[in-house]
């Protein structure tokens, strides 16, 4: 409906039976970021391969959220924010002319720290909200709702009250609803910024299970403050750090086991063993 002339084929409908789009590799190179004149990220480079869960760890204020928001063009929505460097999705520059920002965000979904279902919509409408909001038609709504809620591990809890308000769920349920909503537009990448930090342990476990199940169909990048969580769900890990009054950088990135068991940098070792941050 919206951008049929675009160089990138835009799905004009999503059919639940249709296999989801291939997960894609996201590559950030030389990314720097500013809020006004203040530089908060300095030449960050990271490859987030398809079918991999990448965890971003580091003390607060070191630019993890800024970095993850650059990956789906949310950073630019903050007044005065700017950036340098490039981010590619399967080789396509997401800051180039080829992909409009809305299409980028459609392909690279995001889950925020605070669950944010739309209060004026029902549970089912929340799941379908992404499609409605980007003007995509669906053939079988009910099947899509069931599929996405099942993937997010919420179907059994809400199948009898799909018409209730999204706000009537508990925090953990809301966060899973938000994940279902993000999955309904069939993103290639799913970014999660501390998705569990406002949740109870049970909900956290459910979401971790969901992440593991989704790994084959969508590339996942997750920011977490919980070291055990990073170790449990991710295969790759990047440690961010900002020295005082300096922008954040990646100190070390690599396979999760290496970061946790044999880090090359002493600061990484200190952080993952809870000695600071």
């Amino acid at each position: 409906m919206a951008v049929s002339e675009s160089a990138i084929p835009v799905r004009d409908e999503v059919v639940p039976e249709q296999p989801s789009r291939e997960p894609a590799t996201l590559v950030a190179s030389n990314v720097s970021a500013w809020f006004g004149d203040r530089k908060v990220l300095e030449s960050v480079g990271l490859e987030m391969p398809a079918r991999t869960v990448t965890a971003l760890i580091g003390p607060s204020g070191c630019g993890k959220s800024t970095f993850i928001r650059i990956l789906n063009r949310m950073h630019e929505l903050v007044p005065g924010a700017s950036l340098a460097g490039s981010v590619t999705l399967n080789g396509i520059d997401i800051y180039g002319d080829e992909l409009p920002p809305t299409e980028t965000r459609l392909r690279i979904g995001m889950v925020f720290q605070k669950p944010n279902p739309f209060p004026a919509m029902t549970i089912a409408e929340n799941v379908l909200a992404g499609l409605k909001l980007s003007g995509i038609k669906v053939r079988d709504r009910d099947a899509l709702v069931e599929e996405c809620l099942t993937k997010a591990g919420l179907w059994n809890e809400v199948k009898d009250r799909l018409k209730a308000s999204g706000g009537s769920l508990s925090g953990g349920q809301q966060q899973r609803l938000v994940i279902a909503r993000a999955l309904a537009v069939r993103p290639q990448v799913l970014l999660m910024d501390e998705p569990c930090s406002a949740l109870d342990p049970t909900s956290t476990r459910r979401i971790e299970e969901t992440i593991s199940e989704l790994q084959e169909e969508v590339t996942i990048v997750i920011v977490t403050h919980n070291m055990q969580q990073a170790a449990r769900v991710s295969q790759q890990c990047a440690f961010f750090l900002a020295a005082e009054n300096e922008p954040g950088r990646i100190v070390e990135a690599g396979p999760t086991e290496q970061i946790f068991e044999a880090p090359r940098d002493s600061r990484t070792a200190d952080y993952v063993h809870g000695r600071f941050g």
Binding site: M74, L77, E103, L133, S134, G135, V185
Partner: peptide, 24 residues
């Protein structure tokens, strides 16, 4: 957060205003 959520789903700003902000 609701505006961000809508934009992060790939919604254009006018649809965000019309379908998310105004109904809320």
């Amino acid at each position: 957060g609701l505006r961000e959520a809508s934009l992060a789903l790939g919604a254009p700003e006018w649809r965000t205003a019309l379908r998310v902000v105004l109904p809320t």
